[in-house]
Amino acid sequence: MTTTTLAAAPAGRSPTAAALRRFRKHPAAVVSVLFIALVVLAAIFARPLSGHDPNAIDLLSARTGPSGDHLLGTDSTGRDVLSRLLFAGRISLGVGIASAVIAVVVGTLLGSIAGLLGGWVDGLVMRLADVFMSFPSLVVIVVVAGILGPSVLTMVIAIGLFQWPVCGRIVRGVTLSLREQEFVLASRATGAGPLWLMRKHIIPAALPPVSVVATLAVAQAIALEATLSFLGLGVQPPASSWGNMLTDAQSLTVIRSEPWLWLSPGIAVALTVLAVNFVGDGLRDAVDPRSAS
């Protein structure tokens, strides 16, 4: 998401181009972008890459280690681990991005409305944000998943709703400082209304810090999805996710004798979350030249 906005920036002396230049000076972030691109491609081309149906049970070749036919081995019912891992990547990335999008959209809308209108609207939105931030999100999501029944959609919405306050506060802060700027007054003097100001002046100005928050939200959401699926409240079998692959591999014998079952999803989660966080750090320095070391 953030990579596409950066790629769409026109070359030249625009602020976006300058940010892109600063971003390229971050080796970890650049490598991470490449890694994420690789993960995304692998998830998209999961089937041709793995060559196996992720749900095809083959009891005869159950619990075999990595081999030429099954590069990452098979699980207790003989399903191909590589194939399950790649398909799980679709879900994990999908959940991560979708819930971050929800968080950003809700946060940007509520934050800019609160900042622009002020008064009791501002108070209401900010108290709402406080409520969401002071709840232990995992517990609430567990309860919600328990009531509504576990599904990917509930999980996406629940994660997204718990992450909007971070974005909302940032957008509100940007709005408040912009509201006093003379160019906003000048824009109003040429006939701009609140919606126009939001679209043309406030949201573009909020975009850099929001893109950082969004990236970090993706990382959090991926980790949270893995946690929830591990607990059995997220993605339901037979569909695979990195979290529920770990669930399948949690017995002591598996941990000791069949490490390919938990190593691959574990590493996938860890590396992906790490890479997304690196990108977030790189973006933060890129959009705010003062923070660059």
Partner: peptide
């Protein structure tokens, strides 16, 4: 505003959006 009545501000440094 900006139609039949146009306005010019004092400081063109701050009255234009820098980005």
């Amino acid at each position: 505003r900006g139609g039949p009545v146009g306005m010019i501000f004092q400081d063109p440094m701050t009255a234009l959006n820098p980005v």
